[in-house]
Design a protein around this nucleic acid. Structure first.
Lengths: 229, 229
DNA sequence: TAGTGGTCTAGACCACCCC
DNA sequence: GGGTGGTCTAGACCACTAA
């Protein structure tokens, strides 16, 4: 069989682990590696490019390729659709719209996602259940100027997250993870006690400088978000 | 200038945004696209491959390429070295080793990271400060069988995370984010009140089935972890 | 079984950047 | 200036899988 870029990646990783190429070391050039592996330079190139993408190597023209001294392994996780997250866990998913209201954006929201004064927004509050247990409380604001259709969407059957994901493309987004103490109101929704620690996820998305939506998601007690390195 | 795979990516993304190719739509095959763009198939292929990697497209042999109906944008974040995180914010970084002890792995740890009975581990407790303010409390256990050198390392000047990252390669890792209520002990370290919500990060790493280390990191009040989509 | 993507090759030109 | 990676090409064979 011919040498695959997979083989090359594995081989390089192996030499890094065995300290043949310790952190900071310079690797041979692509031409030389291609000769060693008996393959085309393009094949070596692809292997190296992927290792750079994975945070293992650094490359600079003329300077060459080196092993990153502090390998910045990157965690990558797909933002799950909550319905899938629950369904995949084997539980039954249930969604309820708690509140729906068109209103002028409150001051803090204007500031947070940079809206013009008195911009109308749609505020939604939704609950997501896994087998009767409160799983997530979602507080969401949608910029009606960016998504006019949202004003006429009931969001009774389909949650706003799924609706937006299917309907509205975005160019940029931000995720913020944090922990807060439950207010009495939130605690009631999630069947917790006031003051219990809540894992919180905030998400903002833009479509070319135009704010699309801002959401806060409060997870039930004990929720853990897991990802592989 | 010749057509670059960047141009193709941009063009395809544009057509998706403009709904020329709505979610679920089948794209033309690589050969046809190459003809349209006036470039080699390999160039189209690279563009498409990257769009798949970015969660925009799906491809299957024979079936062809289609626009993902629920574009699974992936968040990617580099695990920061805490020193860099603090330094980059403009604050002064200070590290203190609070506790250092070689001991047999407690039962919960054996179970958690799958250690043999009575395996010796090194337990470290460290504090990281930003400008005098407690920033992170780190509880770490290192499998001495996997990292014999750790037993002789004082960890007085250099934190175990940085030491491990530089010294010990790993093949797999897991990150878990969660929220807990501060115990009195943790609260004292981080200048919080008992019961305050704490953002917690757990990290486990393996070197080919051999557990290397398990760490719990408790962040100070109000800590937020941010990432771009 | 035929069509589509997956991959490799051998060669080429170019852009960048350290020396 | 010259070496290194970045990219493109034209062609080829292969692997998978839907029909």
């Amino acid at each position: 069989m011919r040498t695959s870029y997979h083989d090359i990646k594995a081989n390089v990783l192996d030499r890094i682990r065995k300290n043949v190429w310790p952190p900071g070391a310079n690797l041979p050039g692509e031409v030389e590696l291609a000769k060693e592996f008996g393959c085309a330079r393009a094949t070596v190139n692809r292997a190296m490019r992927e290792l750079v993408h994975e945070g293992i190597l650094e490359r600079k023209r003329k300077a060459g390729t080196r092993v990153k001294s502090a390998p910045s392994r990157k965690a990558e996780f797909a933002i799950p659709l909550i319905r899938e997250e629950i369904t995949n866990s084997g539980a039954a998913y249930r969604y309820i719209l708690v509140e729906r209201q068109v209103m002028p954006a409150p001051g803090w929201l204007q500031a947070q996602i940079n809206l013009p004064k008195n911009q109308q927004v749609l505020h939604l509050r939704c609950m997501h259940y896994a087998d009767r247990h409160g799983y997530q409380l979602e507080d969401r604001w949608i910029n009606i100027a960016a998504v006019p259709d949202a004003a006429h969407e009931p969001f009774e059957a389909l949650g706003p997250n799924e609706w937006l994901v299917r309907k509205v493309p975005f160019t940029d987004g931000e995720l913020v993870f944090s922990a807060i103490n439950a207010t009495q109101e939130i605690a009631d929704f999630l069947n917790m006690a006031e003051g219990d620690a809540i894992f919180t996820l905030e998400r903002t998305t833009w479509l070319n400088d135009l704010s699309v939506t801002y959401a806060r998601m409060y997870f039930a007690r004990g929720y853990k978000m897991t990802t592989q390195l």
